[in-house]
């Protein structure tokens, strides 16, 4: 049963990693415009990288 000592923390960490990624996405407003984002992949405008931050 010693394998549990490794596996349980690992599974928790992986889950927490997923949660953190979701939080990051939410904070960065990745879910702000699902419809627009779905269409944007069809345009040639931003293929290389996201728009440069304004400065």
């Amino acid at each position: 049963m010693n394998v549990l000592v490794i596996l349980i923390p690992v599974s928790l960490l992986l889950g927490a990693g997923g949660l953190a990624a979701f939080f990051w996405a939410l904070r960065n407003r990745q879910f702000e415009d699902p419809e627009g984002d779905a269409r944007r992949i069809l345009t040639r405008d931003y293929d290389e990288r996201p728009k440069a931050p304004r400065e």
């Binding site: 960065n28 407003r29 702000e32 931003y46 996201p50 728009k51 931050p53 304004r54």
Partner: peptide
Amino acid sequence: ARDRAGAGEI
């Protein structure tokens, strides 16, 4: 605002 601009938000 600046962080968000990186992800496309203004």
